[in-house]
Simulated scan of single mutants.
Amino acid sequence: MDLLSAGDWAFALYPIMAAAVALDAAVPPIPSEVMVVTSGSLSANGQVILPLALAAAVTGSMLGDLVVYGLFKRRLTHVLDRFRWGRSVHKGIRRAAARGGRSSTAAAMVAGRFIPAGRTATMAAAGIANVPTVRVLRASALGSVVWACWMVGLGYLTGRNTSLPFWANSLIGVGVGIGVGVLMAAVIGLRRRRAASHGAADPDPGDVSGR
């Protein structure tokens, strides 16, 4: 089996990617973005089916969102604390929430997934704030579709416009994605610091939740 060719393992990529994206919500260090961008790069030369790659990314994103949201909405985090691995996961989610802020608006749930730890933070905040499940589902679906199109698209565009191997195209796409995420995080952080200096509430990246 040629490990540098997707022909032998392409169909295994879809469920593995969906699982990785789902786990990434609760365990942010999992580099699921790499797999998602890679799927786009592979789809550019026909080794991966583009609609299936998008569907896997969206499915995993929504599942992960709902797991984190449900843990905090149902106050089930004490279940994690019974296990050593669970305590590590719980601590990681709390750290992500502390870094990402407390916003639970629909706009924050959509935009948060584009910044480091933002997806975990906003879903945890939505659970703590007891945001209605239907509202979370809508925001998660919209955010997941936009995020999947963006990440898969990065790999696809680099794959279509360069003659590099898929792993090199993936690195380029991941680099662009990380750069955009860091820039967004810096802008949001600057807004928060300015708001705090004026005694204002923690700002959201726009509120379209209707609240």
Score class of each variant (00 low, 15 high):
4 L>G: 11
5 S>V: 00
6 A>E: 04
12 A>C: 02
13 L>P: 00
15 P>F: 03
15 P>H: 09
16 I>H: 04
18 A>V: 04
18 A>F: 00
20 A>V: 03
20 A>C: 11
21 V>Y: 01
26 A>H: 06
26 A>D: 07
27 V>T: 04
28 P>Y: 03
30 I>M: 10
31 P>D: 07
32 S>Q: 10
39 S>N: 14
40 G>S: 05
41 S>R: 14
42 L>E: 11
44 A>Q: 02
46 G>S: 14
48 V>R: 14
49 I>M: 10
50 L>V: 01
51 P>W: 02
57 A>H: 11
57 A>W: 08
57 A>I: 09
59 T>I: 04
61 S>L: 03
65 D>I: 07
65 D>A: 07
70 G>Y: 11
72 F>H: 14
75 R>Q: 11
77 T>M: 09
77 T>S: 06
77 T>I: 06
79 V>S: 04
81 D>C: 06
86 G>W: 02
87 R>Y: 00
91 K>Y: 01
92 G>M: 13
94 R>M: 05
95 R>S: 05
99 R>H: 03
99 R>C: 03
109 M>A: 13
109 M>R: 14
112 G>S: 12
114 F>L: 13
116 P>N: 07
118 G>I: 04
119 R>Y: 00
122 T>M: 10
122 T>C: 10
125 A>W: 02
125 A>E: 04
125 A>M: 09
126 A>T: 05
131 V>F: 04
137 L>P: 01
147 W>V: 05
149 C>E: 03
151 M>S: 07
154 L>W: 05
159 G>W: 13
161 N>Y: 05
162 T>A: 05
163 S>N: 15
164 L>P: 04
164 L>H: 08
166 F>L: 15
170 S>P: 04
171 L>K: 15
175 G>H: 06
175 G>L: 10
177 G>L: 09
178 I>L: 15
178 I>K: 09
180 V>P: 01
183 L>H: 08
188 I>D: 08
188 I>S: 09
189 G>A: 09
191 R>K: 14
193 R>D: 12
196 A>V: 04
198 H>T: 08
199 G>W: 06
203 P>M: 13
205 P>G: 07
206 G>K: 14
209 S>V: 05
210 G>P: 13
210 G>Q: 14
211 R>F: 06
